[in-house]
């Protein structure tokens, strides 16, 4: 889809900068310009489209939709709605209370809370730009599966007593929030797009620059040996390293792309990305206000184990999708 851009940037590097793509520096410069333009185009397009869709799914409506389902389909619905409902970790507490107060089971609430941060429009756009749409879609599917399975496990473990008591006593008022017009939705999508790009472009460019350097220079043999699909500990290490990186997650994708071309396992790169978004310290601190440490520990452990598992699976099937 971006062949034209590849050729255009090749011309730029060869004719304007006078560098050959066969040299390390020429290869790096080409990677930087090609990737930057491609990612910015896809980011703008994807965030705008998804934000527009999101304007139809307020958390209040999401809560209503979920209540209409039963059993496991409730978890599946919650995970899917987690993709389209606007969410940021600062909203996790009011959202949690709203769900529980509305009679939505704890496991279903966690299905939503696990999938929602993992599957976000910016990660999807960059994955698409870096790895192609098949991997981006697989990432979404895995995010949903993780949410559904994680929620079901939390439900089976009967952890309701580890929710702070006051949450169950809370009474909510029903505000009458006005229906948006078409113009409101376009405006919402536009301001959301500008806001997200304004926030992440620095990390993405730094990520692309590091990726470009790796692309031109990193020793392939050493990387394949230590972080390739053949090393079983790589996925585990990637998950652990990822957790403190939270908001810089998006910048790590172009790095992952460059590493992948150098022989690092796809599952390793994928586990790294999922862990950066799914598990963050700021969110844990906020959630502590509504749930007790034991439940937080369950949430973290189930999500982390799930991510490691997905990582191994991707390493196993990578050759089928790339």
């Amino acid at each position: 889809m971006f062949d034209w851009l590849y050729v255009l940037m090749k011309k730029l590097v060869e004719n304007v900068f006078g560098l050959s793509l066969d040299t390390g520096i020429g290869d790096s410069v080409h990677f930087f310009f090609y990737d930057s333009v491609k990612i910015i185009i896809l980011l703008g397009f994807m965030i705008f489209t998804i934000s527009y869709i999101r304007s139809y799914f307020s958390p209040e409506k999401t809560k209503e939709y979920i209540s209409k389902f039963n059993g496991i389909s409730k978890n599946v619905m919650a995970s899917f709605l987690g993709i389209v409902t606007p969410f940021c970790s600062c909203s996790s507490v009011p959202l949690f209370i709203g769900f529980v107060e509305g009679g939505i089971p704890l496991g279903v609430t966690f299905s939503f809370l696990i999938t929602s941060p993992i599957v976000n429009e910016a990660a999807f756009a960059i994955l698409w730009a870096s790895f192609g749409w098949k991997i981006a879609v697989l990432y979404v599917v895995m995010g949903v599966v993780l949410g559904v399975v994680g929620g079901i496990i939390i439900d089976k473990r009967k952890l309701e007593k580890y929710v702070e008591e006051y949450v169950y006593e809370m009474q909510m008022n029903r505000p009458d929030i006005e229906e948006l017009t078409f113009k409101d939705r376009i405006n919402f999508a536009k301001s959301n797009t500008l806001e997200i790009i304004g926030r992440v472009w620095k990390y993405v460019l730094v990520g692309i620059a590091i990726g470009a350097a790796i692309h031109g220079w990193a020793p392939e043999a050493a990387l394949t040996k230590y972080a390739g699909p053949g090393n079983p500990l790589a996925v585990l290490a990637a998950t652990i390293i990822a957790v403190p990186l939270y908001s810089n997650a998006l910048g790590t994708i172009p790095i992952a792309e460059a590493l992948l071309m150098k022989g690092v396992g796809l599952g390793t790169a994928m586990a790294f990305m999922m862990a950066t978004t799914a598990l963050s310290f700021p969110e844990m601190v906020l959630l502590r206000k509504v749930i007790k440490p034991k439940l937080i520990a369950n949430f973290v452990a189930i999500t982390a184990i799930g991510i490691v598992f997905i990582g191994y699976m991707f390493n196993g099937i990578a050759h089928l999708v790339i």
Binding site: S91, P94, E101, M172, P175
Partner: peptide, 8 residues
Amino acid sequence: MSFGVMAT
């Protein structure tokens, strides 16, 4: 929560 909002 007393205002009924679920997103901040």
